[in-house]
Amino acid sequence: MKIKKIVALSAAAGIALAGLAFTPANAEPVANSYVLVGSDTLQDSTNALTNGTSASGSFVRILSNGTSLGNFDAFGSAAIQTKPNGPFFGRPAGSGAGVNALRASITGNPYSAGGTNTTPAKVITGQVDIARSSSGPGSNANAAGQLLYVPYARDAVAYAYKGGTAAWATLTPVQLKQIFDGTLTTVDGAAIKPRLPQAGSGTRNFFLPAIGYASGTTVAPGVSDVGNATPENDATVLAEGEIIPFSVASWVAQANGVTGTNSTTVAGVQLGSPIAGTTPFTGTAPALVPSATYYASTSFGRDTYLVVENARVVAGAKFDAGLAALVSGTSASLTNFGSSASTPGAVKKKFGFLAPSTTTTQRAYLNL
Rank of each mutant, 00 (worst) to 15 (best):
K4H: 13
K5G: 11
K5W: 15
V7R: 15
A8P: 04
A12F: 15
A13H: 01
A13F: 07
G14Q: 09
F22G: 07
V30G: 08
S33L: 12
S33I: 06
D40Y: 08
T41Q: 11
Q43Y: 15
Q43L: 10
D44L: 08
S45R: 09
T46W: 11
L49Y: 03
T50V: 07
S54V: 15
S58G: 00
V60E: 01
L63Q: 13
S64A: 14
N65H: 06
G70V: 05
N71T: 11
N71P: 03
D73C: 07
D73T: 12
D73S: 15
G76F: 05
G76H: 04
S77P: 01
S77D: 12
T82I: 07
K83F: 06
K83Y: 02
N85Q: 15
F88R: 12
F88E: 13
G94W: 04
G94L: 09
G94C: 05
G98I: 07
A101Y: 01
A101T: 03
G108R: 08
Y111G: 02
S112N: 10
A113Q: 11
G114E: 08
G115Q: 14
T116A: 05
T119K: 03
P120W: 00
I124E: 06
A131Q: 02
G136W: 11
P137W: 05
P137M: 10
N140K: 13
L148A: 09
A153D: 13
R154I: 04
A158P: 04
A158H: 01
A160F: 00
Y161A: 12
G164M: 05
T165Q: 06
A167S: 14
W168Q: 10
A169S: 10
T170L: 01
T170M: 10
L171W: 03
V174I: 14
L176K: 08
L184M: 11
T186E: 13
T186A: 14
V187E: 05
I192E: 02
K193V: 10
G200Q: 00
G200D: 03
S201Y: 00
T203K: 03
R204G: 06
N205Y: 05
F207M: 01
A210N: 03
I211K: 01
I211P: 05
Y213R: 03
T217P: 13
A220P: 04
G222Y: 08
V223K: 01
S224Q: 03
D225Q: 15
N228Y: 08
N233V: 11
N233Q: 01
N233G: 13
L238N: 11
A239W: 02
E242F: 11
E242V: 00
I244V: 14
P245A: 10
P245M: 05
F246T: 06
W251I: 14
A253F: 09
N256Y: 10
T261C: 05
N262W: 06
T265F: 00
V266C: 01
A267G: 08
G268H: 07
Q270D: 14
Q270E: 15
G272W: 09
P280M: 02
T282E: 02
T282M: 02
A285E: 05
P286W: 13
P290S: 05
S291T: 03
Y294P: 00
G301N: 05
R302F: 00
Y305K: 06
L306F: 10
V308T: 12
V313S: 00
V313F: 04
F319I: 07
G322K: 09
T330N: 11
T330V: 01
L334K: 04
N336E: 09
G338D: 02
V347D: 04
F351L: 05
F353T: 04
L354I: 00
T358L: 01
T361Q: 12
R363H: 09
A364G: 12
Y365G: 08
